[in-house]
Amino acid sequence: MKAIIVDDIEENRVSLRKMMEIMRLNIDIVGEASSVEETIELVNSSEFDLLFLDVELGDNKSFEIFDKLVNTDFKIIFVTAHSNYAIDAIRLSAVDFLLKPINPEDLVNAVKRVQKEIEKSDYLRVLETLTSNINSTSKEDKKILLKSHDSIKVVNVNTIVRCEANINYTTFYFTDQSKLVVSRPLKEFEMILKDYGFFRPHKSHLVNTNFISSFEKKEGGHILLSDNTIIPVSTRKKEQLFEVLSQL
């Protein structure tokens, strides 16, 4: 696998390159860049498979490169020094990222996921979703990219009514009454969607609070959603639920 490293600090580029060698990832570094301008020129003139892209490049954001790329036949692993506004957009878009200081095990796992990734035609949809989320200033306009075993679906977050766990799979239910099974556990989507009005009242359920119609105390307590679905509420989540409902 051939890769390019983009980071405005040389020490970080050297450190990442050495870590790849130590972990025996068999990655050939074909180029490095430290600015938006250098990155655009290098990416458009190189043949490679993977781009390690630092979110912050001096006074600029690395997302600025996407509108100026001719070559998009590669995968991306974002690297950032801290959790910031960009992380939410990256998570929603199903793109891998690493937090600095980079943990060697996280690096290995991210590279393995990329190696198993989707084909080029679908990866373009990933980049389009990421660009849309970065440019959107409203939570109502945010999109999430969901991968099933045979397809990719990009949906507005506010069209998700609820999610239901089934071991390591999650079933999404939408406002148009369609559903989609995704091969990722519910806890991952709880982390991604918690800032977009979603609440987990039970270990098996994650609900969009905008679709809660009522809370019934009988039979231990349950939520009634606008599509008439009944969702159980665990005892330890009742107090949190009341706080959420009081803010609606």
Rank of each mutant, 00 (worst) to 15 (best):
S93K: 00
V55A: 05
N60L: 12
L225V: 03
H205N: 15
K179S: 15
D73C: 10
Y173S: 11
A86V: 02
I22M: 12
K238C: 03
F66G: 03
Y196T: 00
L69P: 07
D88I: 00
D67A: 13
E41Y: 13
D122L: 15
K139A: 12
V43G: 07
E219T: 14
E190H: 07
E10N: 11
L127F: 08
E10V: 14
V155H: 04
Q240A: 12
E216I: 15
N135Q: 15
T129H: 02
I223Y: 06
L57V: 06
K112W: 05
I167F: 08
I102K: 01
K68V: 05
S121T: 13
F189H: 01
D54N: 14
A110I: 01
I9C: 08
P201S: 05
S83F: 11
D59G: 08
V182S: 01
K61C: 08
L99A: 03
E239G: 01
F48A: 02
E38G: 04
L57P: 09
M191Q: 13
T171N: 09
Y85R: 12
L16D: 06
M191N: 10
I5E: 01
T229N: 12
K61M: 12
D106M: 06
F74G: 01
L124V: 13
S62C: 14
A94K: 10
S138I: 06
I77F: 09
K142T: 03
G31T: 03
H222Y: 15
E47P: 04
T209L: 03
Q115T: 09
R24F: 04
I152E: 03
T72A: 09
L130D: 09
I77M: 10
R13N: 09
V70K: 13
F215C: 09
E21G: 06
N60D: 15
E37I: 09
T72C: 12
V14H: 11
S226H: 10
N208Y: 06
E38S: 02
L241T: 08
I22T: 14
N158M: 06
F198D: 07
E119P: 01
S46I: 12
V182R: 01
E243K: 13
R125L: 13
E119I: 05
L69W: 07
R24Q: 13
V244M: 10
I118V: 14
H149G: 09
V181W: 04
V55H: 04
A3D: 02
F189D: 04
V6R: 00
I22Q: 11
E216C: 11
K194A: 07
S234Y: 10
F66T: 01
V155P: 03
N168E: 08
N44S: 04
I65D: 00
R125E: 15
